[in-house]
Design a protein around this nucleic acid. Structure first.
Lengths: 264, 264
DNA sequence: TATAAACACGCATAAACATGCATTGCAACT
DNA sequence: AGTTGCAATGCATGTTTATGCGTGTTTATA
């Protein structure tokens, strides 16, 4: 389904179009919008300002980004990245069974997973990430439990003692901790000590743990250990990962799931 | 199938034709309709007003749009009255002082307020709304505390016992409870009992309370009382509110703040 | 540090809009 | 016939909204 570009559009129509475009393309550029709608850049900026005020997008120098996207500079955003995470997410959600309780961490990969969850599947989702919560609020058939606490803005989710305490009061079937790095010998790693503690709490609160990572996080380590490799039951990786890298994990008892190839 | 344009039509026929056109073309423009039916724009507008009142379309500046099945009630609320809420939000944030602790409830108006908060102002924001949290995460200079709990998807924020309990552990300077209705005699109202309890907890946890409302919420009441008028220190209203309505509140000791006229 | 692009803000203008009022046409009733 | 009631309409009035432009500021980048 191809979107036409309306040469004359009502203001509200423009804003709706911008939102659609943000969802499908991941970004909009002010100058381009002005060209498409045949209006001045001022009007476009006014639209973006309003949308941002409503929390529907994030304004950046040059245009706007959807809120789900990380706040990276506009020009160096790669759409390929989105496709890769989408493929990973599609594979990851095949591990979810009806009626389960999921524990979902912060991170763009996990946001993609949340978005890929099947609707009306009677799922309970526990999360410390406003990102993830908001994605699920707009959909149906989810019981959502928000984990509170101090928000670390660089992570984009609640961390700290309170969050860990609240997680301790939950029991989940499946856990999706956002990973900074994973290797077959030493397990799961993070760059932040507090973050590591939280993810550890998540894993302990869950029956099974699913680690979903892009290629560059494979085999590397970081500063703080989150969990041993024995505590991880599933690993979802990209199609491109070579056979050897996959085998070292399955040799340690981890079920390796390979995502479909990315078309782009 | 192309509809012919009836040169003479009864009001009912016109309205039916407009609905058909909305379904097939996705929009109607007032001026065009007036041309098609050979009537004045006033009559067309009257038609649109009636259709909108029946919930059959959505009026926008310039014409009308079909209310798409895709937009849930919550999503819809988010996108309405964008500029009006922007003006309200701009006024509301003038009440915020550097270094304060804010307690911000859910709701589109409050999302606008969050977006309008001055950056690098050393503020601490406590909120139960993923919406609000997410807006602030993308910006700088905020300490964000997330209130956890079960999320009510129709409200879009954490409610229930846990949320109330967590709010009880916080002390804020300023509180922005989302209001369903406010009147000068009986105070602040909500339509949901659980929501009312939560907002009450918020107000009790705060030094001062600021109520920010669009015009249509003024003077009306709802089913569940949140707070007496004495508990509210500030009221931020739209520019268009008449003098009499403003006086009844200031007579009860509420500082009334009038937003600028909506120009953009 | 210099430069251009992107941006915010106020202002002016025109279109779109709401509202009250007078007019028209038509049907029903005395 | 007369006229009463009603709905639809158009017009005049004042208000709101959308837009583009000029000015001055901020931001990104060489």
């Amino acid at each position: 389904m191809i979107k036409t570009m309306p040469n004359e559009a009502l203001p509200q129509e423009r804003q709706q179009w911008i939102l659609d475009r943000l969802r499908s393309h991941g970004r909009v550029v002010a100058v381009e919008l002005a060209e498409t709608f045949q209006v001045s850049e001022d009007s476009v900026r006014r639209d973006l300002r309003e949308l941002a005020a409503q929390g529907l997008c994030k304004r950046v120098y040059g245009g706007a980004l959807p809120l789900s996207a990380a706040s990276t500079p506009l020009k160096q955003r790669r759409s390929e990245h989105g496709n890769r995470k989408l493929a990973l997410a599609r594979k990851a959600v095949t591990l979810v069974r009806q009626g389960q309780v999921l524990l979902i961490d912060a991170g763009s990969t996990n946001a993609a997973i949340a978005a890929a969850l099947p609707e009306r599947f009677d799922l309970t989702v526990v999360t410390n990430a406003p990102d993830v919560a908001r994605i699920l609020i707009d959909r149906e058939g989810f019981e959502i439990l928000l984990i509170g606490g101090r928000i670390d803005t660089s992570i984009g989710a609640a961390v700290g003692a309170q969050a860990i305490q609240e997680i301790g009061r939950v029991r989940a079937d499946l856990c999706f901790p956002g990973a900074c790095a994973i290797d077959s010998l030493h397990g799961l790693w993070s760059f932040d000590s507090e973050e590591a503690l939280l993810k550890r709490a998540m894993i302990e609160a869950s029956g099974e743990t699913v680690v979903v990572v892009t290629q560059e996080k494979l085999g590397s380590a970081a500063t703080h250990q989150i969990a041993n490799i024995e505590e991880i039951q599933h690993l979802v990786i990209e199609h491109a990962v070579d056979r050897a890298s996959r085998l070292v994990f399955s040799a340690r008892g981890v079920a390796v799931h390979r995502a479909d190839a990315v078309s782009s």
